[in-house]
């Protein structure tokens, strides 16, 4: 199996609007793919189609050799597709450890009880939240909540991890920390698809970048190829990045 995730002509319509239109994409195991594009390009919708939140209006989503197009989110989760949300979604009244244990037992097939708790603690240690394990999730700062999201998605034992703007709203130090975490996750062999507006993150992290514009995939290639692609520059990056040398600096709009 050389393809983990395969999208064939995936389209999602909302009324008359094609939020995602005829997207073909195949992701090999171990890849770290950056999904970029202007606001409203359909990035989150595409993630929602892959995870089963929205059903594809047409087209096929294949995961790990199986057709997963019509699956519900919980079924996709159990097959190894994990995602984090742009706006973090903890269980606010539960402890941090319980949040992660929930992911471990429902998607990761870990037994309820001590086993799930032990697993949760392991993931919390990895993301640096072990001391917060018994605190309520609602008491965490935004940066911590983002890390909690990461711990939760890891507890799901994913084959594919979809990260939807995990760095939005973080300061530079926090972004660096998140970056090293994501590298660590990739090093574990988890395939990652990351939606990100910070070009610094995308360029330093991704093995390949795909660009979505008006719901269509307009480019796909290595970071170097993408920053020089005239269509991408016009649609998203702006002329600032055309020089190439400064590509790794700063942040695009959004």
């Amino acid at each position: 199996m050389t393809t983990l995730l395969q999208l064939e002509g995936v389209t999602r319509q909302f009324g008359g609007l094609k939020a995602v239109s005829g997207v073909d994409l195949s992701v090999a195991p171990g890849e770290v793919i950056g999904l970029i594009g202007p606001n409203g390009a359909g990035k989150t919708t595409l993630v929602n189609v892959i995870t089963g939140v929205h059903r594809a209006s047409s087209g096929i989503v294949r995961f790990d050799g199986e057709d997963v197009t019509g699956l519900k989110p919980f079924q996709a989760a159990r097959r190894g597709i994990a995602r984090t949300f742009q706006i973090v979604q903890p269980f606010p009244e539960m402890t941090v450890a319980e949040n992660v244990a929930a992911a471990a037992m429902f998607a990761g097939a870990v037994r309820y009880g001590d086993e799930a708790n032990a697993e949760a603690l392991g993931h919390l240690r990895f993301v640096g939240l072990a001391e917060m394990a018994d605190k309520r999730a609602s008491s965490l700062t935004l940066a911590m909540r983002k890390r909690l999201e990461l711990a939760k998605s890891l507890a799901m034992r994913p084959k594919l991890l979809l990260l939807d703007e995990v760095n939005a709203g973080l300061n530079a130090t926090e972004v660096d920390h998140a970056l090293s975490l994501i590298r660590g996750i990739a090093a574990r062999g988890v395939t990652i698809l990351i939606i990100e507006h910070l070009m610094k993150v995308v360029l330093s992290l991704c093995t390949r970048i795909v660009v979505l514009h008006h719901g269509e995939l307009i480019a796909s290639g290595t970071p170097q190829e993408i920053v020089q692609d005239p269509r991408v520059i016009q649609a998203y990056l702006g002329r600032r990045y055309a020089a190439g040398g400064e590509a790794a600096e700063g942040q695009s709009h959004g």
């Binding site: 939140v53 989110p73 919980f74 989760a77 269980f91 539960m94 429902f106």
Partner: peptide, 10 residues
């Protein structure tokens, strides 16, 4: 506490 998140977690 959060039905959509629960769904996403399996």
């Amino acid at each position: 506490q959060n039905e959509s998140a629960a769904d996403m977690l399996g």
